[in-house]
């Protein structure tokens, strides 16, 4: 066994160097200037009336990728939930630690964060922003509420929480399928409804992704993590 280990020891360095070499060679071989899909995207996004081209790619042209990516996030949340240990310990520990300063700060920050989150969803179609940025703020709010003892992390895993986690993906699929009923292909927004439907999807995605991010954090934080803290 020792022999085998010694024999395999140089493998990681060799694989890494080989990767570096071939990728460097490939990058240097590329032409210095290339359009990619810039032209077609810019043209189609202008026609669809979405000024943020990245949003147009994410929610329209390649909306299917985004739909599956939401599934990845939900899947990871389900997986982490299945690994979590007793959440009650965390709550007990957190409520012991809550201080008046933290409580006051929470009261100020939470409404503010909520407004920021809504704003980020709203501007998503024209400027940098959108569901993920908004959800990151919302998720952080959820974590803050739990850490300051306002919300009980046992909620993670309850039916209500599970519904919030699933509503984003289900809405996304629902609207995608609705387009089929209306006579188009999956995710082919009927003319004139694109902006509204994208906003509905983004809003509910924000809710689910925010809940996902908070659950991911709180599920991992629960259990006997005290052991390494002491």
């Amino acid at each position: 066994m020792r022999d085998r280990e010694r024999l395999l020891a140089p493998v990681p360095v060799l694989v890494a160097l080989a990767t570096l070499a071939v990728v460097t060679r490939a990058v240097l071989s590329l032409p210095r200037s290339a359009e990619g899909l810039y032209g077609p995207v810019a043209e189609a996004a202008a026609r669809a009336g979405i000024s943020n081209r990245v949003t147009a790619v994410l929610l329209d042209f390649r909306g299917y990728d985004t739909l599956l990516e939401i599934a990845v996030l939900m899947l990871a949340t389900v997986a982490v939930l299945s690994l979590r240990e007793d959440p009650r310990q965390l709550y007990r520990r957190l409520s012991e630690r809550a201080t008046p300063v933290l409580a006051a700060l929470t009261r100020i920050l939470v409404p503010l964060a909520f407004v920021v989150s809504v704003h980020l969803v709203w501007i998503g179609s024209s400027q940098p922003g959108g569901a993920f940025q908004a959800a990151a703020v919302l998720g952080a709010t959820g974590i803050l509420l739990s850490l300051s003892g306002y919300a009980r992390p046992q909620w993670v895993g309850r039916t209500a929480m599970r519904s919030i986690l699933a509503v984003g993906l289900l809405t996304f699929i629902g609207i995608a399928v609705l387009a089929m009923v209306a006579g188009g292909a999956l995710l082919e927004y009927p003319e004139g409804t694109r902006k509204t439907l994208m906003l509905v999807i983004e809003s509910l995605l924000t809710l689910s992704i925010g809940a996902s991010l908070a659950s991911l954090f709180l599920s991992s934080a629960s259990g006997d993590s005290e052991r390494d803290g002491r």
Binding site: L37, A44, D60, F61, R62, G184, A185, Y189
Partner: peptide
């Protein structure tokens, strides 16, 4: 072939 979103290549999937 099924063009998701009605786009087809190269924009769509």
């Amino acid at each position: 072939r099924y063009e998701i979103g009605g786009w087809g290549g190269p924009l769509g999937i």
